[in-house]
Amino acid sequence: MSHVWTIAEQSKGKLRAVSFELLSRGRKLADKMGTKLCAVLLGANVSDESLQELIYRGADEVYFVDDHRLENFVVETYSNVLSDLIRQYKPHTILAAATSSGRTLMPHVAIQVTTGLTADCTELDIEEETNHLLQTRPAIGGNIMATIKTPNHSPQMATVRPKSSRPLALERTRQGKITRLALKEELLDPRVQVIGYREDTEEFANIEEAEVVVAGGKGMKKAENFTLLRELASHFNGVLGASRDAVDRGWLPYPHQVGLSGKTISPKLYICAGVSGSIQHLAGIKTSEYIVAINQDPDANIFRLADFGIVGNLFEVIPLINAKLAARKQKEGE
């Protein structure tokens, strides 16, 4: 009763990293209220070790609704199942990831169970006297931070931006209970069928969940020059991003677009080159932990938001960074 829940996510039976990030958020809230933290997972073919990892990373209990028909995310059935669990167990708070599935599932559930939902939160806390969830999120292109609560409805629900918290360290001595639940037939909604999957052409476009994003703008001049950034990204295991101008020119596909009409990201490190820093672009990167900018124009707007900036020609600067990082790596290897 009155527990804190996090909605874990899986893809092809493997837990996604954001599941663990949510647990570290949830742990703090549960501890503050002196209640339990439960991870809820819908899916199929998830190994016992994976479920156990949820316990090792902060959960007291795991509910796993295990059915091959839950292998792929389909909002109708997922929403029925989660709403049913909510009615049965009455959790106090539910945190889900602000991912393509979390941001689809939770607003659907909010209507089914009649409660509020705050999108894309970056900070969460519990109000002392009332135990209300205080949900803080950027709005209007990151120009304001709004703190929102749901005073008269239950559960308290929020989606949380990926990469905005770190997973807890693996603690193999943690004990917890794992409950496998069957899918109730009447909750299955067969209308929407997943009939295929297409990978992104660029090797990895998941810029919302990447620790490091290396982005290029119009200053990159042409698509081929992104090899410079690809090399730079490889030093950090990072992924490629782009400004709208670069995407509109076809240098990278749309899923890489950062900003107001692209993706809002919160990586640990954002490096951009040849990006001027329009308000629309900055809207997507304001919650990055560190921002590094390379631009030849000393007055470029991007420098207002940079933690470290280099005023210079990116075609000279980036190759030198790449060379020095490669030399450094080689030295470490010796």
Partner: peptide, 14 residues
């Protein structure tokens, strides 16, 4: 169901 209870203006420049 939701109420905005506080608005803050984050520092834009670093």
């Amino acid at each position: 169901p939701t109420r905005v209870i506080k608005i803050g203006y984050p520092k834009v420049t670093r």
